[in-house]
Amino acid sequence: MGKKKPAWHFFTSGYLILVLLFIYLPILYVVVFSFNDSKSMISFEGFSLRWYEAMLENREMLESVKYTVIVAVIATVVSTIVGTIASIGLSKARPLIRSVVMEINNLPVLNPDIVTAISLMLLFLSVKIQRSIVTLTLAHITFCIPYVILSVMPKLRQLDDNVAEAALDLGANPWQALTRVIIPQIYPAILSGALIAFSMSFDDFVISFFTAGKDVQNISMYVYSMKRFNPSVNALSTLIVVAVTIVLVLANLIPALRERKNKKEEY
C-alpha cells in the first residue's frame, strides 16, 4: 500500500479524535456534573458527593435500576435461547417457510418502536391481562429475539450442512449434534446476538412505557417521569458508565487472553 504522508495521517487522526470527542462529550458532561454542588446543569459550583448520597437514598431510582437489570437479563437469556434454537430450526426449513417467518421476524426491527409498543398494549388490554413485570418481560423478549436471529442466522448459513449430518450418521442424536457440533461453531454469533439483545432491553423506553404495569418501572421510565430534573440521575449515569466500561473491557480482554492461552498450547 502507498506510503501515507504525515499531513494525511495528522488529518485522519485529528478527525477521529473529533468524532470521539463528540461522542464522549455528553458522557463527560454527565460525569462532571454528577459531582456538582448545585442542581444546575449549566454552571459548575464546586465539588460534592451530595447527588451520590441522594441517589443511594432514592429507593424508587434504585428499584428502577434493579428492574432494568432483571428484565434485561431474563429477556437476554430467553431470547438468546429461543432465538438460537429457532435459527437452527429455520435454517433447515423449506425456503418459503423460512422467508415468511424471517419477514415476520423482521417486523419488530423495522416497525417503529411506538407501533410495536401500542400493538402489544392493545393485545394485553384486549385479552384482559394485567400489565406487570411479566408483560414487560414478554414484550422485551419479543423485540430481542429478532436481533438474536438476525445475528445467528447468517453464521448458520455459512456452516457446512454435512458436518451435522455426518455427526447424525455417526450415531449422534440430534441433541448431541446440536450441542457438540453446531453450537460451538456459531458461538461468537450467539454471543454478539445476546449482547445486542441486552443493550436493546437495557435502553428501551417506548415499549416499556406502554407494556409495564404498576409494579415496575425501568430506568428510562423513571427518567422520563421526572418533572424537574433530578441531578441524582447524573450520579446514576456515571456509575452505569463505569460498570459498562468494566464489563466491555472484560468482555474484550477475556477472549484475547483465552486466545493467547490457546496459542501457547498449540506450540
Binding site: I27, V30, V233, V241
Partner: peptide
C-alpha cells in the same frame, strides 16, 4: 456510549 441510556 451506545450502552448508556439514550434519555440520559
Amino acid at each position: 456510549p451506545m450502552w448508556i441510556n439514550m434519555l440520559l
